[in-house]
């Protein structure tokens, strides 16, 4: 069991009275890339925020590296977060700091390393994402894909054991998308970290992840390795993998019968 960095058992979460997630069972092994997929608004970002400790589960168990997130006080949560990195949807770089200072930020905040050593570490991280040459640029001078790679360098600055990705592929051109996907895979393998990727980009995910969870309507609707999913004939998975318009996920928002609303029915 200690092989699993993330253990989620029987987890439910509600915003007020609205139940967003229920009976979630999920685990991620060390060194794996695990994708959480599903349609927009299906609760996958909420799940990621639960893992990051930004939200507390309403019931159930959520363990990261053996620590129960539900009962952590702020101090220990911050301790735990030093071993997590998170890549936000659009990078969330600090706009008033240069690329170099952005990557140096967690090092300066959490360590007392001398400035030369920070410089070496930052350049190493930037080199890993291929942007060593851009250390002096400001975030406003970067393209979307580059900004995300800088954010990735920042996320791995403290050598975390878990990296969370919130929609890392959103709004990227096909080349940047492939670059980012490969980068996630390579960093996971070389650093030996666990990566949790929330995304709805099915093709890119199936290419690079180890395991996929489909979240729909607050429950895990399907799971499996990419091969299993491609071969799956479960209607929901089939619809999602092949991008069909109608299926178990309806095209129409729930509404009274069309005929009834147009008063065609007698």
């Amino acid at each position: 069991m200690s092989d699993n960095l993330i253990e989620i058992r029987d987890l439910s979460f509600a915003y007020g009275k609205r139940l967003v997630l229920k009976d979630i069972e999920l685990s991620a092994r060390r060194g794996q890339v695990v994708a959480i997929m599903g349609i927009s608004g299906g609760g996958k970002t909420t799940l990621l925020r639960l893992i990051g400790g930004a939200l507390r589960p309403t019931s159930g168990v959520l363990k990261v590296d053996g620590v129960d997130m539900g009962s952590l006080d702020r101090e220990s949560l911050y301790q735990l977060r030093r071993r997590m990195g998170m890549l936000f949807q659009f990078g969330a770089l600090f706009t008033d700091l240069s690329v170099f200072d952005n990557v140096a930020f967690p090092l300066r905040e959490h360590t007392d390393l001398p400035e030369e050593m920070i410089r070496d570490l930052v350049l190493m991280k930037l080199n890993a994402v291929g942007l060593r040459g851009g250390a002096d640029l400001m975030p406003s001078e970067l393209s979307g894909g580059m900004a995300r790679r800088v954010a990735l360098a920042r996320a791995i600055a403290l050598e975390p054991s878990l990296i969370l990705y919130d929609e890392p592929f959103a709004g990227l051109d096909p080349i940047s998308l492939g670059v980012t996907g490969n980068l996630i895979r390579r960093l996971t393998d070389t650093l030996g970290v666990t990566s949790i990727v929330v995304t709805h980009d099915i093709q890119e995910s199936l290419r690079m992840v180890d395991y996929v969870y489909f979240v729909s309507d607050g429950v895990i609707a399907a799971q499996g390795t990419p091969e299993q999913l491609k071969a799956s004939d479960e209607p929901f998975v089939h619809q999602f993998v092949h991008g069909e318009e109608d299926g178990p996920v309806p095209f129409h928002y729930p509404a009274p019968s069309y005929a009834e609303e147009l008063e065609l029915a007698a």
């Binding site: 998170m86 969330a92 706009t95 905040e109």
Partner: peptide
């Protein structure tokens, strides 16, 4: 400045970096 930092998730990112 603070509103934009919040809108672009910079504050959330900081929080996730345990700052």
């Amino acid at each position: 400045e603070i509103g934009l930092m919040k809108a672009t998730e910079q504050l959330a990112a900081m929080e996730m970096m345990a700052v």
